[in-house]
Amino acid sequence: MSNYAFYPGCSLHNTARESSQSLLLVMDRLGIGYDEVPDWNCCGGTSAVSLDEQLAVNLAVRNLLQAKSLAGDGLVVPCAHCYHRLMSGKRRVESDPDMRRRVEKELRHPVEDLPPVYNALQVMERAEILEKIRLYAVKSLSGLKVACYYGCQLVRPPRLTNFDHPENPTGLDRIVEILGGEAVPWPLKTECCGGNLSFAKRDVSEKLAQRILDMAIECEAECIVTACPICQANLDLHQFQLFHRSTGAEAASARKKIPVFFFSQLIGLVLGFDSHAVGLSRHFIPAWEALALAGIR
């Protein structure tokens, strides 16, 4: 049995609870072992690197050191932003001896043999895991049309992230097909959702989210699936906000809404977990219609 260290990050403790909830169920079922990184700290996101470069590297490396004793097969990070930051910190200390010395001084700990870092999607998209999902499946998405949305931080920049392609990745598509769904071709797979601009610049962030939602609907997708907690929050929450802000007449002619799943939720449903167990009740845009289409309730 494989054994990974698991780094949830702040988003999976808050807005993306259903991501870790469903992922851990699926990992258990598939016999992928994990232990949560003890006393992990925030990765610093785009904020720490905007203040001080070494701060960002320190934050990443402290987590990697905390994970070291547990990570027989590596460190699994479900959040795209955390993954990006941990990878970036790891590369930096491994390629820059001067930076490594400074980090060692501040952490008062030697920095060597850091564990390999994987995004949860990179673990689940492996051929042997896909085969296992196919064997363990008790339901099917029955041709449900899915727009696979990767977002930006997960797959870019390619020098950091080790995905198959920075603009046309296929991991989610392959998972959806194994689950019996249909991955629709669409052009905004890796377009940015606006990230944390949804906090500070809502008007800008809403335009980005709306464009992605409109395109998915135009390409006849019945739901969106993503691997990133920020993407899921922005797309799901934006639709909810839009609905509550519109006046009576606008609400009547309401735009079509589209549910946004984490890929681990879809895997969980097909493996036989019920919708509550994979956290669908936490979503803003209800998923019942899409699930009924897939014949899953």
């Binding site: 403790h13 808050n14 807005t15 993306a16 609870r17 006393d39 992990w40 700290n41 203040l51 001080d52 070494q54 701060l55 320190n58 934050l59 402290r62 501040e106 952490l107 009740s281 936490r282 979503h283 803003f284």
Partner: peptide
């Protein structure tokens, strides 16, 4: 309502180490 915000901050034991990073900055 959806359990998407924790009411109280989650504090780590190593927060003094993290504070040390900021003091250096």
């Amino acid at each position: 309502k959806r359990g998407k915000l924790r009411m109280w901050p989650s504090r780590i034991r190593g927060r003094l180490v993290v504070r040390g990073f900021f003091q250096r900055v």
